[in-house]
Nucleic acid binder design. Sequence first.
DNA 1: ATATGTGCAAATGGTTTGCGTCAGC
DNA 2: GCTGACGCAAACCATTTGCACATAT
Lengths: 135, 135
Amino acid sequence: MSTKILDRCETMGLRVTGQRRIVAEVLEAADDHPDVETIHARAAARDPGISVATVYRTVKLFEESGLLERREFGDGRARYEDAKRDHHDHLIDMQTGAVIEFVDPEIEALQERIARRLGYDLKGHRLELFGTKRN
Amino acid sequence: MSTKILDRCETMGLRVTGQRRIVAEVLEAADDHPDVETIHARAAARDPGISVATVYRTVKLFEESGLLERREFGDGRARYEDAKRDHHDHLIDMQTGAVIEFVDPEIEALQERIARRLGYDLKGHRLELFGTKRN
DNA sequence: ATATGTGCAAATGGTTTGCGTCAGC
DNA sequence: GCTGACGCAAACCATTTGCACATAT
């Protein structure tokens, strides 16, 4: 399967509209973690007529279809990124809002180990690990 | 310093009102992670006249004073817990909303190590670690 | 041709705030 | 008594939704 969001969109049998094409391409090109307002701004640069409501509907659809992943970093708005990127986690500076991406195999093991330690059944569920550290 | 929220509230020089006393006691007694609506419900059981606005103002004040810690688990509402409890982190089941508390010294080291690896200055900042795992 | 997507504006849900009144110190 | 807290209702902000019209297939 192609790595492009738009192609996966078609593969999923979703209708390909002008707006969806643009939202897909915006997120394809993004190397950050844009919120809906930002996605809309970037999309509007290509099609000034696109509405925020459509962006909201589109990212929600894409997320439910597994094309995008929704992130919530505690600032009240959702952020999105291409689901097909290599797996990674995030470290957020709550003072500055800076987002640090990283990959650490230990986290994966840790999550599974902790859940297992507590007798928790993992099948089909998504687990989010929230760790806090004050310095 | 006493371990009771109310005492720390006084120590901080905050005015002790009937409502603040109740909110402090509600969170003192809580062994879960109540959101504002829940805190208000529990508080209203003692003083039916207490308003949600006051609960919002109080938990915010307490958080800024370091008496409480605010948590956001991705469901759109903030949750609070006593800041003086032993340090721990959280694992959330995004399907059921189940909150699993755990302590794991590796997470601490991991957070510091990752930030350091990236040349990030930690001083005075609070870092949140967000890890995702699908099963 | 028909089912589905879009834009607009109104509605929602959590949280904040202005204002007049009340209470802690 | 003065400063700050409370209750109420309106305001806010991110997100969702109803409806009339437009468009992909």
